[in-house]
Design a binder for these strands. Structure first.
Length: 555
DNA sequence: TCTACCCGCGCG
DNA sequence: AAAGCGCGCGGGTAGA
């Protein structure tokens, strides 16, 4: 049922079956490192165990290189991070078992900081050093015990399973990469910026735009990339902007504004996703970002390198299926508001969400059919808006949906008081910062004002945390269910791979013949995620799914 | 010359 | 039209 994989002190690989409580259930096997893939493949086929290891990337990237996909795992390091903070359990301290087993690593630190990308590539196939196998087995048993004594055992168990499945999916996506056509990308750049220039100089169209701008502002030699120079030039031209942000500049009517906004757009494309980006992050026709599972406090993933979680609309046409293949792109519609309706058990909001478009449903129920205002009001409730249109609409929203609004208000009040808040499955906020604690020990009224600001900031954070974090849990359950279905399709000879994940959106690269089955699998996985998180709660999580040749054709 | 920080903008 | 959450990144800038 569980198989621990670890490095033995002598450099061999240590495999051991563990029982349901994490205790050794059979004598360990020692394997030579090059025997690992074969052994794992055999055990996976025969037993479909949950693989237990310190960190998924340590083992799974080499297994994927040997084409050994796995169904389930338990990532001790990620689960330690969750359990250490979770208000759903008590008495768990990460690394205690490791330290007790005599490992010289510092206590409280089962997972040292992740390897830097450079180290990762250098040592990918080297022996991952770390605590001895017995210590990892003891740590696993500690984690299972922490789940067992939780009053929310099923939820916490689901969270650890989903996070671990996420680590498998992340490794698979990094291994596969997004199919990326550098010629298409280069074409986009050439059309918007001009042909690729020598390194260090501006492409022709960008340089021309800079010249036009200098002429219109009467500022020869001005470098538009320098905020200071730009600000001086704007002021001399009578544009009294306080910042150089695009949305503020849009307020002014002056002949230089339009070219300036165009310049900023073009310069952004060049620096963020230009030729240098292509050179650095696309190789062998694939964009291979590194995903950091649980990299955000709320449980969302972050990424390292290439800004993979911010691929701008402008270059999405370069993400193209290979010949004979399709991209299946799916995203969850209005995920966060729907999660809020489920969290708060708000029947009224759930019924407004019954259709495809939640905002339209809410608009019809109480905003005179004005979808835009309904959306602003709801997002304002989730983010904690107090001023502007969104702030003004709050009372109206609260009358319509007292349970939903009350739920986020409670999370905000708790945060302001320095309490921990927790997602549906059990991810809790870290303790308030030292800055927060210090701010509460104040005397003067000046300090008190600052303390209030800090408390309100934390209130907005905790308000959003419960919703964003629970949405991340839904998405992780979704991807977990999806990858199991893809493994099933693979056994039927239908090949498809997960290639991209972005908070509430997934992309598959599938053989054309498998595309429809993939679209169905994505839908099934979403229904399953809803049932796993909120059994019996009548909130729907509809998707929009597109089968396309390139990413820009989706939605 | 190097480092740490801020700004601005892209994504959800 | 534009303030309220979470990120990563590149370039400019200030200080060492």
């Amino acid at each position: 049922m569980h198989v621990l994989v670890a490095s033995a002190p002598d450099g061999s690989v240590f495999l051991q079956r563990l029982d349901a409580a994490g205790r050794p259930a059979a004598p360990p096997e020692h394997l030579a490192r090059d025997g690992l893939a074969g052994a794992v493949r055999r055990i996976e086929a025969a037993e479909r165990p949950r693989w237990v290891w310190r960190r998924t990337p340590d083992w799974y990237s080499q297994l994927l290189a040997g084409d050994v996909p796995l169904g389930r795992c338990h990532d001790l390091s990620l689960c330690a991070g969750i359990l250490a903070h979770s208000s759903y359990t008590t008495g768990y301290v990460p690394g205690t078992a490791v330290a007790a087993a005599g490992h010289p690593a510092p206590p409280h630190a089962l997972p040292p900081a992740p390897l830097s990308p450079h180290q990762g590539s250098l040592f990918d196939h080297a022996a991952p050093a770390g605590p001895p196998p017995e210590a990892l087995a003891a740590e696993f048993a500690e984690q299972l015990a922490a789940v067992s004594r939780s009053p929310h055992r099923p939820r916490l168990a689901l969270l650890l399973a989903a996070e671990s499945a996420g680590s498998l999916a992340a490794a698979e996506m990094q291994h596969a990469g997004v199919p990326w056509d550098a010629r298409v990308h280069d074409g986009v750049l050439a059309e918007r910026l001009g042909p690729r220039p020598p390194a260090g100089s501006r492409p022709a169209l960008l340089e021309a735009k800079a010249a036009e701008l200098r002429a219109l502002l009467g500022a020869p030699g001005m470098n538009p990339d320098s905020p200071q120079e730009l600000m001086r030039a704007l002021h001399r031209a009578g544009i009294e902007a306080r910042t150089t942000r695009a949305w503020e500049l849009r307020e002014y009517s002056h002949p230089a504004i339009a070219p300036l906004l165009e310049y900023k757009k073009m310069a952004r494309l060049l620096t963020a996703n230009g030729w240098a980006w292509l050179d650095a992050w696309v190789s062998d026709g694939r964009l291979r970002p590194e995903y950091v599972v649980g990299g955000v406090v709320t449980g969302r993933w972050s990424s390292r390198g290439g800004g993979a979680l911010q691929i701008p609309a402008q270059v999405r046409s370069a993400a193209r299926a290979l010949p004979g293949h399709r991209l299946v792109v799916a995203d969850a519609s209005q995920l966060e508001p729907r999660v809020l309706a489920a969290l708060a058990r708000d029947e009224a909001m759930a019924s407004a969400a019954r259709g495809r478009d939640l905002y339209a449903g809410i608009a019809a129920a109480g905003f005179g059919g004005d979808r835009g205002r309904a959306k602003v009001a709801l997002l304002g409730a989730i983010y904690g808006a107090t001023t502007g249109e969104s702030g003004r609409l709050m009372p109206q929203l609260a009358r319509l949906y007292p349970r939903a609004v009350g739920f986020v208000e409670q999370a905000a009040r708790d945060g302001e008081r320095g309490l921990t808040v927790t997602t549906h499955l059990g991810r809790s906020t870290p303790a308030p910062s030292e800055r927060w604690l210090a701010s509460q020990r104040t005397a003067t009224s000046e300090e008190q004002r600052r303390a209030d600001t800090i408390a309100r900031d934390r209130g907005r954070f905790t308000r959003n945390f419960v919703v964003q974090g629970t949405a991340a849990e839904w998405a992780e359950c979704w991807i977990a269910e999806l990858r199991l279905r893809l493994l099933g399709l693979r056994r039927k000879g239908l090949r498809a791979e997960l290639v991209y994940f972005l908070h509430d959106e997934v992309m598959l690269h599938a053989e054309a013949a498998a595309a429809d089955a993939c679209a169905e699998a994505v839908e099934e996985a979403a229904r399953s995620a809803g049932r796993l998180l909120f059994p019996g709660v009548p909130v729907e999580f509809p998707l929009s799914v597109a089968v396309v040749e390139s990413y820009d054709q989706a939605k």
